[in-house]
Every structure is written in C-alpha cells, then in structure tokens.
C-alpha cells in the first residue's frame, strides 16, 4: 500500500507561540498578509471561569478536496500520498478553489498571482524531512506521517487518542486531526458573528 500523509496536532501541547506560522512563511517564502499556516487564538467564558484555546490551521489535504473538484483547469491535483498541490504554471487565478475551500486554506499569492496553500512542505518531505511547522514546533504538538504505516506516530495517535477534525459534516474528509480541540475553536461562531446570538 502506498503512503497516505496526515497531520495530528495535539493541542494539549500547543503553547500558542506561532513558531509554526513563522517557520512556514520562512520555508515557503509566503508574502506578507497571507498565510499557508496560522494559529487562531480565542478566549472563552467570563472571569473567573475562563479558558484559552488555540487552533493551528493549515490545508487539510482532504481525501475529497472541494478545491480540486472545482478547479476548471485541473491545476489543483492530488498525489497518491494524499498531498493536494497546485500547479503554479497552469493556475489561471480564477479564485474558485478559494471560494470552495471550507477551511479558508487558500489565497492568491500576491507575487506569483496564482492560488496557493500549504503543501505539507512537499519538497522537504520528498527528501525525508518533516514539514517546517512540525520540525519547528517547540511543544512537540505537531505530528506528521503515513496513515498507512501502523507504526507511524500519526497512526498510533489516531488509534489511541480521541481526535476531531474541523467541519466533519463536509464531504471533504479532512486529514488534519486535532487532539483536545474545543468545538468553539473548530468552526466560526457564525450566529455571534452576524449578531444573531441571544
């Protein structure tokens, strides 16, 4: 069986330092104002009953990616190992993938003028290195590996820990798994955002 890459993020170990965001920008030359990988932070509750949550976000390299399905020129493609990539030479920059991704994972690179997103640091992984965000994580919260290898860290974590994904109701089957994620952090509180929360 071939490889199927996935990421597991253990939020119990995330300290919210944003080193992953910075490492990603540095590794992949991501221009200012856009991010391939970022960390949402939020506080819930009212003093003295409060808590803080963090949610590192990146492309979920979905099993059934909406972005791939809507691309009119097949510029977005998926490798056998599950990695979803963009052919920067073919992309016409129509923005359909950006509108269709349920995770806001994509943007138009203001310099290259094509759609872009996290690649799981494909060039690093191809030579046996870890993605930059995993490599740099100071709390050791990020795990990257092959789901088809029962001895990989990600396989073991998925087998032994309770995990969630963001927006499981989509037919995307996202492959970034979170341990200890708060439901409030996994999706926007739309009702509050539109002012409809009582």
């Amino acid at each position: 069986m071939g490889k199927r890459y996935a990421m597991v993020i253990d939020l119990r170990k995330c300290v919210g330092c944003h080193a992953c965001t910075v490492a990603c920008k540095s590794e992949n030359n991501v221009p200012l104002g856009v991010n391939r990988s970022w960390v949402e932070e939020l506080e819930t509750g009212r003093f003295p009953n409060v808590s803080r949550h963090r949610l590192p976000r990146l492309c979920n390299h979905c099993e059934n990616p909406s972005c791939l399905n809507v691309c009119p020129v097949k510029a977005t493609y998926q490798l056998e190992d599950g990695t979803v990539l963009v052919d920067y030479d073919r992309c016409i920059g129509c923005g359909y993938c950006i509108a269709a991704c349920p995770y806001d994972a994509r943007f138009i690179n203001p310099e290259r003028k094509t759609a872009e997103k996290c690649t799981y640091c494909h060039e690093r992984v191809a030579v046996g290195l870890l993605p930059a965000c995993v490599n740099t994580c100071i709390g050791g919260a990020r795990f990257f590996g092959d789901l088809n290898d029962p001895n990989s860290e990600v396989s073991k974590l998925l087998a032994t820990e309770a995990v969630t994904v963001s927006k499981p109701e989509t037919n995307n089957r996202p492959q970034t798994y979170y341990i200890g994620a708060d439901e409030k952090a996994l999706r926007p509180n739309l009702l509050k955002i539109v002012g409809g929360e009582k």
């Binding site: 399905n69 809507v70 020129v73 073919r90 992309c91 016409i92 003028k113």
Partner: peptide, 29 residues
C-alpha cells in the same frame, strides 16, 4: 469581466486545453 478578474488573464486558454467535468466553471467555458 471574468477575464479581467483572473489573476493570470494570459492563461485563460488553459480553460480550453484542460477540461474538468466536476467544475461548473469548466462547463461554462
């Protein structure tokens, strides 16, 4: 309008050379 909305208008011909049946935009071309 569509052409001028593209980030890469010069590549619009890709729409004709790469058909993608799951994309409604590809039908539209």
């Amino acid at each position: 309008h569509l052409l001028l909305d593209l980030a890469q208008p010069g590549r619009a011909l890709n729409l004709f050379t790469h058909v993608h049946l799951t994309s409604a935009m590809s039908w539209g071309v």
